[in-house]
Design a protein around this nucleic acid. Structure first.
Lengths: 216, 216
DNA sequence: ATATGTAGACCGAACGTTCGGTACAGGACA
DNA sequence: TGTCCTGTACCGAACGTTCGGTCTACATAT
């Protein structure tokens, strides 16, 4: 009772699952992009230590050995790959609009829009948060520092170019990231995503408001 | 060669290590308060899934089995105990000042002071963050929701009593917690505690500032 | 004063399971 | 054919948990 019949198999000859896979996905059971998506989800919800190979295997449909074929460096390499991909996505979608033309407020709104997408309206955690527990002194930690700094500095640059004093620009950029991260924590802990969306909505105006004590 | 001599034992009679322990610490190898402190540190640093019994055992000096003597419910009960204790501490030290007499700004400063102490200047994570990964639908999750709501509502109440409209008070209270949590995430990811301290410092004035569009 | 009983705190060892990681045989393509 | 990739089977170690038993303190009975 393992297979229905031999005919059934010959009829769809050349269309067996492995062949279909190889045509569509260049020989992989799961394409790189989707594999990374699944990995990202696991790391986001469980953190580094909580993301066991079993969970990863379940989420990706790949066996341990196959995962090690794709990521010879093991779990650490998977986490780094996920971090890299997330960074690239944010850079290309959320940060790039900041450097483009248009009113500053509109550019910030565009970023907020993309962040809302990336964090699925507050339902997903930030990798910089999730991967910051229990990982001590390694490539992952370094990666985080660089990513965090790049994010803050991208916003700060934009605010400076919009006329804000460098110090204020930097502080507000930090504050922006802080509020995004914080609202994600709150959303996760309280089970309510509303504070996250409200934070995103108010970001553009909050960041661009006039400094209070300008030139006394 | 099991004991040095009978005399040696009789001389320090009543002062053998176990006796000293029993007098000072009510018969426990480690008193409850300190045990919970150590537990808190492990959960804060590694999150729930990352806090293995081995790490906990190392941190507390108690063997696995002994930990189960103190917490029959196992790891979950340990996490809940830690959450309860942290909540009580915050309630008693950080939230209580909000209800006392004195200028509102001073009361908020007092809270910020205690939070700085609790989070060790930004070097420690928040349990609501650390324990929100990988724990699904249980007492821990419920505990978090309650704690988060209590925290926000304590600040909101205080802001309302200071004359802010209810809606604004609630939003700003959420914002306060968001910024605290977010700055802790940033501190952890970037390795720099400064944004956390700056956030704490600016909290009182930020929360009490006059609403912008008051009665047009 | 000595013996007995009870209760709590603790530990060593082991439970079955899962951990991250590896070796290898065979399938699918060139 | 040779090269890449996959899945099975497996490794030693660690996981959370439980068991049997020791040690100490204290109350009671003698």
């Amino acid at each position: 009772m393992k297979r229905s019949s031999a005919e059934a198999e010959s009829i769809i000859a050349g269309l067996t699952l492995p062949n279909v896979r190889s045509i569509m996905f260049s020989m992989s059971k799961i394409p790189d992009a989707e594999l990374l998506d699944r990995l990202t989800e696991v790391f986001r919800t469980h953190g580094y230590e909580g993301a066991s190979l079993s969970k990863i295997s379940d989420a990706t449909g790949l066996q341990r050995a196959s995962l090690y074929h794709r990521f010879p460096g093991g779990k650490a390499e998977m986490a780094e790959a996920v971090l890299t991909r997330a960074g690239e996505w944010l850079e290309a979608h959320a940060l790039k609009p900041l450097t483009e033309s248009g009113p500053p407020e509109q550019r910030l709104s565009r970023m907020a829009e993309k962040l809302d997408e990336f964090y699925e309206g507050g339902r997903q955690s930030c990798l910089l948060d999730a991967l910051s527990f229990g990982v001590g002194e390694g490539g992952i930690r370094d990666h985080q520092k660089v990513a965090m700094e790049a994010w803050v500095e991208a916003i700060a640059t934009m605010l400076r170019e919009s006329g804000l004093p460098p110090r204020i620009a930097r502080e507000r950029a930090e504050d922006a990231v802080i509020r995004i991260e914080g609202s994600l924590v709150m959303a996760r802990a309280s089970g309510d995503a509303l504070p996250f969306r409200r934070t995103l909505r108010s970001l553009p105006q909050d960041l661009l408001r006039k400094p209070e004590g300008t030139q006394a």
